[in-house]
Amino acid sequence: MPVIKNTLEIDERGFIFDPQTGSSFAINKPALFIMKELKAGLPLRSLQEALQKKYGIDSKIAKMDLADFVRQLTKLELLNPDKVSPLD
């Protein structure tokens, strides 16, 4: 299960700050929703369902978008590297 680095500052207005690297990021609202749920420890399968329900999107889009977003987080090194596992 991907876990957000617990040192990340996540601002409600879509501003992310990584104090370990000094990097900052901008995210859109669906991304903010995902990051908050990941930080709260929601498993991916549940998160996909939550995303579908919140935005009324179909399961294929939710699955693809979520996988792509987690991939982005991984490459930006915003996930805890010890706890990332392949997506289902």
Binding site: I27, P30, D68, F69, L78
Partner: peptide, 14 residues
């Protein structure tokens, strides 16, 4: 009410 949606994304501030 369903929220407006677009593909979740994150960009590094430059």
């Amino acid at each position: 009410e369903k929220k407006l949606y677009e593909k979740p994304t994150i960009v590094r501030n430059m």
